[in-house]
Design a protein around this nucleic acid. Structure first.
Length: 510
RNA sequence: GGGCCGGUAGCUCAAUUGGCAGAGCAAGUGACUCUUAAUCACUAGGUUGAAGGUUCGAUUCCUUCCCGGCUCACCA
């Protein structure tokens, strides 16, 4: 028998013995007087003498994480909701049943402790036990007490064990605080929080491969949403002029340190606004977010200090010039970047450099007009954009839902925010001309026919909604997971998602 | 999907260019009434991810496969 099973067998026997003795090993509740955190904060400043005089009675509970026995006495450490507190059990202070229970406890068991607060000789705040109650059993042993769970796969598969590690717990607490801060900032700006369909008959609003499912009763195919965009803008048509949604998107694409098939997006729209307004608002939003979550505007990410107090602004074309690799010859002239005729030669020049230096080349084949320049930007600049940076003005070919620039119709009023070398946000002035939107969808269809599985589908109902009239509107999506990576210093998106997608275990758990 | 790295006791990790698979924690027994990674003594715990191959002998070398990590490509 493996040791694991042996331990479980021994612990089952303890449970059985408890039942034989008339006790319920899984009792229903414990009426605690204080949480461990409350004990901690209430008596943090109280001296040993004052506690001794007062003998404050408490009833506390938690998971037993450490035991240091001394024969007829002993110390234990309880863990409750992230707080640890020491207990002291001595034979001459508790009843016989409680002491027998104490001797029989395993690490990981849950107990309730009645007693009083005191300080040990080393001045540690401790509950002096007078009675113990058994609350629940750990049949399986917990991970190693000092190192915790280290195996990366086990950490993700058994997150409940990983979360016992305070550093891991802190990441998810901070993520929660982040979402709360964002929500509060949007509510303060007069936004309404909404929920739009996660299952859609057409997966629109972004360029990505969707997950497909099927509704039995209606007998129709449905797609898990790749973005909420088209629904949120329908709401703006309906007069909900400031809306935001924090929810999951699903994209049937690769998994990496920056990609999980389901990820959380904050997406928002405000009427009578444009991308200039959103650039300003995003900048203050991020700065305030960093302040509320970390207490400052600077964070450490992959060895870099990132400063969220402001965003640098750079046009896409300027970014290509600035980050054009030295080995690729002179950076493209501004005039060339404005002339579609030069787009291909710019990409080819970059690719010549890429081939000689071993860097990834820009795929030339399927790209439509304007898409090449965007691809060049991503290859040349993205990984250099460590400090928060707004990149603005994109080609219309890669932005089928964004409004054209007044003075340059082949380009749109769109921006993306980069930090830590990752794209974390994407926003634009929304295209609200239904006829132009229809033409854009048709262009996407021709891409689709050419084999681009990620090109937008034609959403007639969305065209109809726009035809009723949508005010000038600006909208933006912010990737919550990546932002959480930045604000928690996590190198992988899996470290900020409680249960990241993994291949299922072939051999079931023990 | 490509490249690189990894998988050894429940957990964290060792194992000498191929030579008896080990330690700490956790577990069991015993000692111990102020410890805090408690201490001390003893005990038990292994199909070294799987299947083949080379060899007198494989955790170690080779092949295939499984699982994971990093990275590149696609994407946010």
């Amino acid at each position: 028998m493996s040791l694991d099973l042996e331990i479980r067998e021994q612990r089952r026997e303890k449970l059985e013995a408890m039942r034989q003795g008339g006790a319920d090993p899984y009792p229903r509740r414990f009426a605690f007087s204080h949480t461990l955190a409350e004990v901690d904060s209430a008596y943090a400043a109280t001296t040993a003498e004052a506690l001794e005089a007062e003998r404050v009675p408490v009833a506390v509970c938690g998971r037993l994480m450490a035991v240091r026995g001394h024969g007829k006495a002993g110390f234990g450490q309880l863990l409750q909701d992230g707080t640890r507190l020491q207990i002291y059990v001595r034979q001459d202070s508790v009843d016989a049943d409680s002491f027998a229970l104490w001797k029989d406890l395993d690490l990981g068991d849950f107990i309730g402790v009645h007693g009083y607060v005191f300080r040990t000789r080393t001045n540690e705040l401790t509950v002096h036990a007078e009675r113990l109650e058994f609350l629940s059993k750990a049949l399986l042993p917990l991970p190693e007490k000092w190192h915790g769970l280290q195996d990366v796969e086990a950490r993700y598969r058994q997150r409940y064990l990983d979360l016992l590690n305070p550093d891991v717990r802190r990441v998810f607490e901070r993520r929660a605080k982040m979402v709360q801060s964002l929500r509060e900032q949007f509510l303060a700006r007069g936004y309404l929080e909404v929920e739009t369909p996660m299952m859609q008959p057409l997966a629109g609003g972004a360029a990505a491969r969707p997950f497909r499912t099927h509704h039995e009763a209606l007998d129709i195919p449905l797609y898990l949403r790749i973005a909420p965009e088209l629904y949120l803008k329908r709401l703006v048509v309906g007069g909900l002029e400031r809306v935001f949604e924090i929810n999951r998107n699903f994209r049937n694409e690769g998994i990496s340190t920056q990609h999980n098939p389901e990820f959380t997006m904050l997406e928002f729209y405000e009427a009578y606004s444009d991308y200039r307004v959103l650039m300003d608002w995003s900048e203050t939003l991020l700065a305030e977010l960093a302040r509320q979550v970390t207490g400052g505007t600077e964070v450490e990410f992959r060895g870099e200090r990132l400063d969220f107090s402001h965003c640098r602004r750079l046009s896409l074309r300027a970014a290509i010039r600035e980050f054009w690799p030295a080995g690729a010859g002179a950076a493209p002239e501004i005039a060339a970047l404005h002339d579609p005729a030069h787009e291909r030669s710019i990409a080819e020049r970059y690719n010549a450099f890429a081939h000689s230096s071993g860097a990834a080349a820009v795929p030339l084949e399927s790209a439509g007009e304007g898409a090449l320049l965007t691809a060049v930007f991503e290859h040349v600049a993205e990984r250099h954009l460590l400090q928060p940076t707004i990149i603005y003005d994109f080609p219309v070919a890669v932005s089928p839902l964004a409004k054209n620039k007044a003075d340059e119709p082949a380009w749109v009023e769109r921006f993306e925010i980069y930090a830590g070398g990752m794209e974390i946000a994407n926003g634009y002035s929304e295209l609200n001309d239904p006829e132009e939107q229809h033409r854009r969808f048709l262009q996407q269809l021709t891409l689709r026919e050419r084999g681009d599985a990620e090109a937008h589908a034609l959403d007639q109902d969305y065209i109809r909604a726009l035809s009723y009239g949508m005010p000038p509107t600006a909208g933006e999506g912010i990737g919550i997971d990546r932002l959480a990576m930045l604000l928690t210093g996590s190198a992988s998106i899996r470290d900020v998602i409680l249960f990241p997608l993994l291949r299922p275990e072939t051999q079931g758990p023990v």
